[in-house]
Design a protein around this nucleic acid. Structure first.
Length: 487
DNA sequence: TCGAAGTGTCATGTG
DNA sequence: GCCACATGACACTTC
């Protein structure tokens, strides 16, 4: 508290001289250190109690000016809609000192300093809490908002969440070039093959690896119609696929639903393309035991070797590639639930798996192409498959990132809403305290004025006079309609 | 039947 | 110019 205010509270009465400048009224000294000026000294507290009262008064005086308007920064800030991030742009920055009032002792004092206890907790806490979004929302929105710059821990969390919740398909360890599996495609492709040729050639027909080639035992036993139309140029009009698909549909549906969890968790499925090579669907070898709960052991036994071949032949020689990946159908049976490109590749007898087509680096891919004599049609198809396959993976990654960002932003939103609620509570508490203080200030005014007497011995009326403080710290009694000058 | 969600594909932009 | 990748937009399927 200001020393001047503590010790001397000269009360000025404008346009009136002090007749008794040093007169004490009720223990309040009214020093006349402005000769000629009617400076009714503010109560100089000889009374410790009054001294204390004045100290409080002066403290309160500061607060008196700290009316909290409804449109205070708190209001505007805290009750912004939670639109991210624009409306929160000032959330963390402007929260500190909504008002500053002149400090009688010079400088400025944050009126909220009286509530330092609470605000020092609130604000830093807010800032702490907003640390993450601060960069996101206030300071560096770009990088923070950029999905590609999610902080690693969060990304890890999100990744984990995404993997566990969204994908759960063992994407960990699967590089981006790996084909993340579209969940919905399994049922779609395996359970409901296209009904028409147009359907067959629809965009949704391709599901590289996401739709593991499924052939129900029923198919294998029944022997689905031969997929004979493998002539170049016929791949886009092989209407027989329809009947084939129809035959395998019902039986496949059950498997498509049952095997999925196991299938998706299978370590060998890191590369979905591993299953999209051209093992005929009618051959059980293309299936993994995991998703063939009812498959006979006889059928399952060939799986390891086939899979081993798949992995072993990642760098297989020219001759082995063809043998390893393009296993000629025994009965020339076409895959029942292969994707469009798989079927096309099958039809065109592309001698290497889609996995390679899609995932090989361009140099290796070109080298691979040089190892075979491919027709223009085959070449075009291979390049299309590669382009589409890569884009499909990219699209999956893109969507995954979108989801992760949504999760992240929702988390941030919740955090900010919690902060808003916290600050709202603090504000209410502050206003409550302020009301108490104002009330007490009024009482103190009343008490002080009741003890002050003018030169005629009449009490000052609070309606006519008020206390004003000069920059030097002195406090004067001034008529409410008057100014400070004329001291 | 309609709408939401998931997915594949294309076109385009960027590094 | 090519390539890989990201992303918006669209079409399609499934639920």
């Amino acid at each position: 508290m200001c020393a001047a205010a503590n010790s001397v509270l000269p009360v000025r009465r404008a346009s009136e001289g002090f007749t008794n400048p040093g007169r004490l009224y009720g223990g309040v000294s009214i020093p006349g250190h402005a000769p000629g000026a009617r400076t009714h000294g503010a109560p100089h507290s000889h009374d410790p109690e009054m001294d204390l009262a004045w100290q409080e008064l002066m403290a309160i005086t500061e607060l008196q000016e700290f009316a909290v308007p409804n449109d205070s920064p708190y209001e505007t800030i805290q009750y912004h809609t939670m639109e991210l991030p624009a409306s929160l742009g000032g959330y963390g920055l402007s929260q500190a000192q909504p008002h500053t009032v002149p400090n009688p002792c010079g400088g400025e004092t944050n009126p909220a300093a009286a509530y330092e206890g609470s605000y020092s907790e609130v604000l830093p806490a807010c800032q702490r809490q907003a640390t993450q979004p601060a960069g996101l929302l206030y300071g560096h929105p770009g990088p923070q908002l950029n999905p590609r710059f999610l902080n690693p821990p969060l990304m890890n969390t999100l990744e984990h969440t995404s993997l566990m919740g969204v994908g759960g398909d063992g994407l960990i360890g699967k590089d981006n070039s790996g084909l993340s599996q579209g969940s919905g495609r399994h049922a779609q492709v395996t359970g409901h093959p296209p009904h028409t040729m147009d359907d067959l050639e629809s965009d949704s027909g391709l599901s590289l690896g996401s739709s593991p080639p499924l052939a129900s035992p029923e198919d294998a036993m029944n022997g689905v119609p031969a997929y004979s139309r493998t002539e170049v140029g016929l791949i886009y009009s092989d209407g027989e696929m329809e009947s084939i698909s129809e035959q395998g549909r019902k039986s496949n549906l059950r498997y498509s639903m049952e095997y999925r969890p196991e299938y998706r968790q299978h370590p060998a499925h890191n590369y979905s393309g591993s299953h999209s090579c051209y093992f005929p669907a009618s051959q059980p070898c293309q299936m993994q035991p995991h998703f063939l709960p009812s498959m006979s052991m006889k059928h399952q036994q060939c799986l390891p070797s086939a899979l081993n071949d798949l992995h072993r032949n990642g760098s297989a020689s020219r001759g082995s590639i063809s043998q390893a990946f393009y296993v000629k159908p025994r009965s020339n049976t076409p895959p029942v639930s292969l994707s469009r490109d798989e079927r096309r590749a099958h039809a065109l007898k592309i001698p290497f798996p889609l996995e390679k087509i899609i995932n090989l680096p361009v140099d290796d891919f070109n080298e691979l192409l040089t190892q075979y004599t491919l027709t223009d049609t085959q070449l075009a198809l291979v390049r299309d498959i590669r382009r589409r396959g890569k884009n499909k993976v990219a699209a999956q990654n893109c969507r995954k990132r979108k989801l992760e960002n949504i999760v992240y932003l929702e988390g941030e939103l919740g955090q900010l809403q919690a902060q808003r609620d916290h600050l709202a509570r603090e504000r209410m508490e502050f206003q409550r305290n302020l009301a108490i203080v104002k009330h007490r200030l009024t009482d103190l005014y009343r008490e002080i004025f009741s003890q002050l007497r003018d030169e005629n011995g009449h009490p000052y009326c609070t309606d006519e006079y008020s206390l004003q403080q000069t920059p030097d710290g002195n406090v004067y009694l001034v008529p409410r309609s008057d100014t400070v000058d004329g001291e």
